[in-house]
Design a protein around this nucleic acid. Structure first.
Lengths: 153, 153
DNA sequence: CTTGAACCTTGTACTGACTACAGAGTCAAG
DNA sequence: CTTGACTCTGTAGTCAGTACAAGGTTCAAG
């Protein structure tokens, strides 16, 4: 199958598949006469694996590690467990941070319940003060609060 | 004061201050004889404001909008309220997504409680299956699960 | 056989919010 | 005068893609 079919059958943009190839995650086994990438069923399974991991917010680096385990079935899966445990920790940690953040934002928002001149705005005043010592976003393995729509074209 | 003092007094890396200048958030008012950036107290306050907003996971674009309100005190603060409400929504939404994600990861992890050969590993098998229809990370304004340490030097 | 659409190729540049240099200039202390 | 800390500009890297441009290939309809 060519890249377009692989793309639609795994709901992955074509450009992303080529990007994964550059990133060393998924290489086409051959090229056609016209220099088109040729994929088989194993490639589709591998790509599904990658996309599932991505949907679980793993980095490509983590996925690379999992693929190494997948490609070496004689190894034991202690490494898989460890990787997953670490990833779960990151996610849990980030949830805690975002909950703290949410509380802070709501507190800030409560400082301005009605429409006033900005010069008296409690929110702007609150933001002008130095931030708390506890860091909300910085230093975490789990990412911040923004992501663009992207993905679905 | 020069950039180094501004940096230490706001706990902001020097490079980040210069980056904010390029991004149009904070411009030094003058240059010294030797072409060094010169800042005053107002700059420090503005930078603290920016850093506080960043610690609340706002984007630079959102901060730019807040700075416009701050710079125009005759305007009313309805826009500030709206911006903050929207940001709170994003954060809450992302928390929900991460909680779902956490549940999925723990379920996956439970499939391999003991160390076995990777070929029998339930986790690898689980990841090979197509992901659920509900998207965890994609399409959200709130970002994914990873961020490098960075920041604190 | 030709035309045109649909597909594919490589390569490059862009995103956000920085971080990390290289190579040069400035300045005060010893 | 030299050393070392500081600063300057400019460029490139990070992550996981996205979005082109400019061209080549394939396939079906006319």
């Amino acid at each position: 199958m060519r890249i377009g079919e692989l793309a639609t059958s795994t709901e992955t943009p074509v450009e992303t598949i080529r990007y994964y190839e550059r990133a060393g995650l998924l290489t086409a086994s051959a090229r056609s006469e016209g220099n088109y990438r040729i994929y088989g069923v194993a490639h589709r399974e591998r790509l599904s694996f990658i996309r599932h991991c991505r949907s679980l917010d793993m980095t490509l680096e983590e996925i690379r590690a999992l693929l190494r385990f997948r490609d070496a079935p004689e190894e034991n899966c202690a490494g898989v467990n460890a990787l997953l445990d670490e990833h779960i920790q990151h996610v849990s940690h980030r949830i805690g941070q975002l909950l703290t953040l949410e509380k802070q934002l709501k507190k800030l928002r409560a400082q301005c319940r009605k429409t006033e001149a900005a010069i008296h705005c409690g929110i702007l005043a609150g933001l002008a003060r130095a931030p708390d010592a506890r860091k909300t976003g910085r230093g975490a393995h789990i990412a911040g609060a923004h992501r663009h729509a992207g993905a679905a074209r």
